[in-house]
Write a protein that binds this DNA or RNA. Sequence first.
DNA 1: TAATCACTTGCTTGTTGACAGCAAGTAACT
DNA 2: AGTTACTTGCTGTCAACAAGCAAGTGATTA
Lengths: 207, 207
Amino acid sequence: MSTPLTQAERSAVSDKAMLVSAMNLILAHGTDKTTLAMIGEAAGYSRGLATYQFGSKAGLYDALCKSISRNWLEYLKSGVGDKVGIEAMCAALDAIRQFVEDSPREGRVLQILYCGAASPSSEFPDTSIGIHNRQRSDVVEWVKAGQANGEIRKDVDAVAVASHYVSYISGMTYLWLTSPETFDFSTTNAEMKRQLRVSLAARGTNA
Amino acid sequence: MSTPLTQAERSAVSDKAMLVSAMNLILAHGTDKTTLAMIGEAAGYSRGLATYQFGSKAGLYDALCKSISRNWLEYLKSGVGDKVGIEAMCAALDAIRQFVEDSPREGRVLQILYCGAASPSSEFPDTSIGIHNRQRSDVVEWVKAGQANGEIRKDVDAVAVASHYVSYISGMTYLWLTSPETFDFSTTNAEMKRQLRVSLAARGTNA
DNA sequence: TAATCACTTGCTTGTTGACAGCAAGTAACT
DNA sequence: AGTTACTTGCTGTCAACAAGCAAGTGATTA
């Protein structure tokens, strides 16, 4: 209780507080208009701590991006389990939906940060690119496993299917971010699932 | 030749020069690290002209976004012609590909600007949102027309199909922007077309 | 065991250079 | 002369850095 914190604990506490403040401020004002001083002071520290802890604004946003991504990948893993093939792809879509419902703030900020990573000389492109590449390789494996067990037709290119699938997810989350009122997550995802089932199913599996 | 330009011409010339400079600088340094002074001076004018002409940095980027978007919509219109249904959707995908091949710089910058518009309190969200909404309504019409002429199965939700389709396009261009080396435009689009044909074709049309 | 001291780590404050935006001015067309 | 295109001087704000202060840590000594 009154036990003084160890150094490591102090750091962990301030670190976490900074990321939380950053997330709130990004949601309220966007990445550009959020200043490092605002983040530090909103977290209950000084205006200089954000720079000190994370080196730069880009460093802080990168850390935030990694933090939320870890969270999201947990969701994804537990949603997909050890499914493969079409079922894995559909389960991943459901996992996104669940994540966005349970943690809309995290979801929105992650999407905003991914967008920021698109600019040339963004200082944290690797985080975003790495995650998308990893997602795509996962999907490639799902497709190949589905082809191996006969669920998915053998004449589709697993890499092309994975690129297509990841493209859809990226764009879908982007549109959800930019126009949450007019974009219907559920029906759009349902259509995606329908198309996946119809277009990937091996002959005869398509009941 | 030595005829002095009219005021309107002077404006048009400097306006154009500013947008070209802005595009080059954004490609080289990203939107954040490009300064209004750089843009003005690269265009052969003073550091202050950009602010004067466009009011603000956001104003300039909005104008650039509109300018490239106009260009792109021309491409789209001429590529799709008066096709409807699945063929219109496939033709639009080809038009994107052609635009990106003919004008990769415009394509990249447009995508970067769309990403910038995603942030809350972006000062030009309407341009991006408007274009995406318009694209989606166009697709809804294509789908409905395809259903009317019997090409597309009647039991799909036109709005869901359109949302799905626009999602794919958004994400595909985003991935092309962020990792142009590892992303194969052609095969990914080919897979999208294949899925559209298989999953939307009315019964019996699926040769 | 407790006290102290040398050292490390967490955090703050002073400062600098760069930038966006504005306002007042100059030059070019009409 | 008057309007429109463009420039220059200026200000407030911000990211980044550097120097310092305070809180924690671990070894030595008694």
